[in-house]
């Protein structure tokens, strides 16, 4: 029964190849996008850390985005 399912009446190669290509390429784009996002979050935090303490506190007080990136990064770490 499993062999029949895999063979798909002779169309197995085309069907499985189609679904595999779709899943693989979608996974690659997802991982690449996530990696870029993490890189930018980390770079942002490095730049934030390098600011003088006064400016850093000012940014954290005024920018919700900075607060959220910091919170997300703390969770990940």
């Amino acid at each position: 029964m499993i062999t029949e399912f895999i063979a798909m009446n002779g169309y197995g190669l085309y069907v499985w190849l189609s679904f595999s290509i779709v899943i693989l390429s979608c996974a690659v784009l997802y991982l690449k996008t996530r990696k870029t996002l993490r890189k930018y979050e980390n770079d942002f935090l490095v730049d934030l850390q390098n600011l003088p303490l006064e400016d850093k506190n000012k940014v954290l007080e005024t920018s919700k985005v900075a607060q959220q990136i910091l919170a997300t990064n703390s969770k990940v770490n």
């Binding site: 996008t33 996002l37 930018y40 979050e41 942002f44 934030l48 600011l51 985005v65 900075a66 990136i69």
Partner: peptide, 11 residues
């Protein structure tokens, strides 16, 4: 990512 990129430029 684009939002972070803008915020990074502002920093």
């Amino acid at each position: 990512t684009e939002i972070i990129r803008i915020k990074k430029k502002n920093l």
